[in-house]
Design a protein around this nucleic acid. Structure first.
Lengths: 236, 236
DNA sequence: TATTCTATCTATAAACT
DNA sequence: TAGTTTATAGATAGAAT
């Protein structure tokens, strides 16, 4: 079937519009009824249609009259406060859609970087033609993963002291794989999981600046870094 | 998580009620908005809550006033016609629930009989302590299956004349399995897929009446049958 | 045209932050 | 308490009857 997401616009086809009207009016009335019952509040709805001279109302003519009276009793100015009108309603929805787009982009970017990360891990060699921006994000992602692993290690360490010796080396092995194959052989050293963020950033920058030769690159160099803040790069 | 089906009743917990109110009011307003846009009709909603002295309305104070004026202009008697009030609304829902229950029971019964049918097929022997009612329904079910198979055969026969010889025996084999293992050996005969419904009913009745011995039971006997109508037994 | 069916979309209860 | 997330309940578009 592959039902499409409805375009929120007047339905031109007459019979389709009538069918939709019937279904949605019914759904709407049910919603009003539920809202009123669940939350114990006064509410009413009035719906006019070309299919019937009478409006359809909820909960009843009397109920509507009562709520209307309450509404009319209020000064005009008060009525306008806190109200949901069509314009502000649409603005809200647009804003929400934008937020969702932003979030989606962030998620996509994160997936992209994860894929890149696994390419590094499985290919076992340095990829060329990767932009500075990608490397930056990739570094951030790896850092996040290491943090997660460290948190996990802490938990395990607390739960069973004997497991510390098993869990910790597992982490350094994974990181070392990038380092060893890509850089030549610093194999004895492993990846310092406590190395600060700046150092890791620099490692990636050096990797980048030294092109593909890479044999003399020191992965854990100590060159200049601009500031002490490493923002989440996925918030573009 | 296993979210429960909401009981449609006043939410006693204050914070839960407020949270639900906010979510559902927003959802409701969206629904009114969509109904109005999609179907190009006049509609309004007014919601009072203890959380705000102002009512929340849709589409706007002016819009509400306009719809209200239209509503008030109508004679009282007219207003009451075709209206959805709480009572008729509930009656509708109860009726629908009853229909659904009925349908569910029918479905359950059909599944039960299907299971029974496969027990016959796989156990390869006659089950005892099966009620007349069950046998009746089972017979109906098997008959339905045979009809389906025959329809299928017809289609295949039309599509490729050569397939007739392959498809037709497959049917008789399945039916013969019940017959052979259960009854002794009438193996050469097979199951006459064109046998009329009455004959099948009688076959089951005979099966029933002859108890478990079953060696001398003629499955396709021709004894007395009360009427020529075999209703769908699942409509209890 | 109305009703029924069902795959899919949407609303939202409950858990989590 | 309010906002966010996630999985399920509910609504409904489009097709079939």
């Amino acid at each position: 079937m592959t039902r499409k997401k409805v375009k929120l616009a007047f339905i031109v086809n007459d019979s389709a519009r009538k069918a939709t009207f019937k279904k949605r009016k019914k759904g709407l009335m049910k919603k009003v009824s539920e809202l009123s019952t669940l939350c114990g509040i006064d509410a009413c709805a009035i719906v006019y249609s070309p299919y019937d001279p009478q409006p359809e109302v909820w909960p009843s003519p009397m109920g509507v009259q009562r709520v209307l009276a309450k509404f009319r009793r209020m000064p005009e100015l008060e009525q306008s406060k806190k109200m949901v009108n069509q314009e502000s309603f649409l603005r809200q929805r647009i804003l929400k859609a934008k937020d969702q787009l932003k979030k989606q982009r962030k998620d996509n970017r994160e997936k992209e970087m994860t894929q890149l990360m696994f390419q590094y891990l499985s290919a076992g060699k340095i990829m060329h033609n990767i932009s500075m921006v990608d490397l930056n994000d990739l570094a951030w992602l790896i850092d996040q993963n290491l943090k997660d692993i460290n948190r996990r290690i802490e938990v395990l360490t607390k739960n069973a002291q004997s497991q510390t010796q098993v869990a910790a080396p597992a982490v350094t092995d994974v990181a070392a794989k990038i380092e060893d194959k890509g850089q030549g052989s610093h194999s004895g050293q492993g990846f310092d999981i406590n190395m600060d963020l700046m150092q890791k950033q620099n490692w990636f920058m050096n990797l980048m600046n030294n092109g593909g030769g890479g044999n003399e690159t020191m992965p854990f160099g100590d060159v200049n870094h601009q500031n002490g803040f490493w923002p989440n790069p996925f918030f573009h």
